[in-house]
Design a protein around this nucleic acid. Structure first.
Lengths: 347, 347
DNA sequence: TGTTAGCACTCTTAAAAGATGAGTGCTAAA
DNA sequence: TTTAGCACTCATCTTTTAAGAGTGCTAACA
């Protein structure tokens, strides 16, 4: 049966696309009559009924109740996303909006991520997630100490991606600020250009040799350690928890509560995003989600890079009935844009 | 009529208190029979009915519909809060929880505020707002420059309350890093101990005299300006948007959406909190709120201080039917506690 | 053989009608 | 002044009814 290869003939595909387009727009189960009226498929409702029955048998559509129209299944959406989806590029107005938005709101680099999340939510009316770069991927640029008082110094750590972290440290007994400055010189010489990750594992040994003083070395070690620590975790920015209420799927407070509580589990959400990291755009639909919390949600992720280095992930999370075309092209655009915006903070 | 002075005799007060206690707990309009059963007031439902009718005439209670029990009015809550409220101190377990919470989660000072908001929401199941100190109130401690590359320096600004802000700046043409260091010395000598606010207005003139170079002075000025800018605004931390869904008042998505959208207007919320700043605990109930968005909400605020200096405000925002006793004592406790926690970051 | 019209049937949703019950207000008696 | 009693009001819950959208199947048609 060569039919097997192309399970869906051209008309079935047209019907499927029409059903999904309709459902995405209306959030109501779609019936044969309405379908025949809106999209002119050139056949009668009865024929469409037959096609829909076939599509249901094949698993692309679902019946909620014996009566009442059909709704796409995960498999249906999958086929739609993989082949039927109409391109819906980001409009010029939207591009202009995005540009203006960044220009007016972003000062510090963490605001880039915050505003990116907000922007994605504003445009897609869905929840957005932005996983900001692990600083471990970033390269060490320099570490400086500033005297604070007789017992403390401020450690300022910089990476090549424009991140600056600071931390107040107690000086060990007997140490002078000059010792710290000497240490900084040694450290900077040895570590410049290394990724933060590799610092942890290798480069410290060399420093040990150069700093003769055991006690000072130990505190240097713990200082770097602690300075790195705060930069180590990826940060997750969340947007659109208000916007999502506009989706009819969340007109029930219980569902909202459930979703918000899930989103609050930051580690879980990070894991999910990390698991989705692939190259470019990745769409995970309903049942395809491993986590049971998201069996009726879809997640679209895009990973952004800088000079070939993986930096992070941006994502849209919403009901399976989602404007995939729009969300996907937006993420793609934001993806490229984000790289540019970050570069402004990069030197 | 001496009665006028004490509009409510002792029994009326007991009835009012019982009604409010009941309503706060159940969120259902309370009727005379149920009241007589639960609280033993020693009189029959009929008598209570009469008392309630009086209380309604006097404006302390309200009728939703001809039938169905009574609900407290803003005036009723006001009387309750001012005189009837049963003390409900923070329990030892809660104190322990708070202590552990801070110890395990707080590293940087901004986390203090973030976690304070989260904690208040967790305990009161209501929205919490924390208005973090204006850094303008804080005292300038020192400003340091760090070389970044040939064209840029990193500016690090410290205040006595432990805030550190940093910012990357372009060096003006012809300037050397040594110039910046010289400038830092001048600036530090002149500004140490001044509040950030006063710096803006006064102290800069002296610096002008000491730094002879006009061009350098201008850039110094803009540097300080920009470094201060980011610290100038008060920051608002918001917590409990998920927790609020547990209140029956927010079982309607439209109300939730409305509230969340209002909360998103950061400047509006800041203004409201600023307007509420008084000494110690302040309770604003329902209609007493000037902003129309909060006519059926209550806001409890507490301001926290450090060494007599106003630092900021913490607040609980919820439906008028709120556990005032609990929220008030919690805020009072957090208030003191916050001062201690902040002191850890203070030197 | 694929397409279509027709029709019985299903099931949801909305509106109407009734039943229940909590609560009030008033009157009259204690 | 307090209380019991009773008629009355409304919200709410359940049941009933009606309407409408949609399906599935059969038979006719091109």
């Amino acid at each position: 049966m060569p039919e097997k290869l192309y399970e869906l003939d051209e008309r079935k595909q047209r019907v499927l696309k029409a059903v999904i387009d309709d459902y995405i727009e209306s959030a109501e189960p779609v019936g044969s009559r309405a379908l025949a009226r809106k999209h002119d498929l050139g056949v009668s409702p009865a024929t469409i009924r037959n096609e829909m029955a076939d599509l249901e048998m094949l698993g692309y559509l679902q019946h909620l109740h014996t009566s009442s129209g059909r709704v796409p299944s995960s498999k249906g959406y999958r086929f739609y996303v993989d082949g039927l989806i109409p391109p819906k590029p980001v409009s010029d107005e939207e591009k202009a909006l995005i540009d203006r938005w960044y220009k007016s709101r972003v000062q510090r680099i963490d605001q880039v991520f915050e505003e990116t999340a907000r922007l994605i939510s504003a445009i897609t009316k869905n929840i957005s997630l932005v996983l900001a770069p692990q600083m471990t991927q970033a390269q060490f640029r320099c570490l400086q100490f500033l005297p604070l008082d007789s017992r403390r110094v401020i450690t300022v750590l910089m990476t090549d991606a424009g991140f600056i972290e600071n931390k107040i440290l107690e000086m060990p007994d007997g140490a002078e600020f000059e010792d710290f400055q000497r240490m900084a010189a040694v450290i900077n010489e040895n570590l410049a250009g290394h990724t933060l990750k590799s610092i942890e594992h290798h480069a410290l040994a060399q420093i040990r040799d150069e700093i003769r003083d055991e006690g000072l070395y130990d505190s240097a070690l713990s200082i770097i350690q602690r300075a790195l620590d705060s930069g180590k975790q990826e940060r997750l920015y969340l947007g659109g928890t208000t916007k999502m209420l506009e989706q009819p799927e969340y007109h029930d407070v219980e569902k909202v509560k459930h979703m918000l509580m899930t989103l609050e589990e930051e580690e879980l959400m990070k894991d999910i995003l990390r698991a989705h990291i692939g190259d470019g755009l990745e769409v995970t639909i309903g049942q395809e989600n491993e986590d049971s919390h998201f069996k009726d949600s879809s997640i679209i992720t895009a990973t952004y890079h800088l000079d070939g280095e993986l930096l992070g992930t941006i994502a849209v999370l919403g009901p399976t009935r989602m404007e995939y075309a729009k969300a996907m092209s937006l993420l793609e655009y934001m993806n490229n844009n984000l790289t540019n915006v970050i570069k402004r903070f990069h030197w």
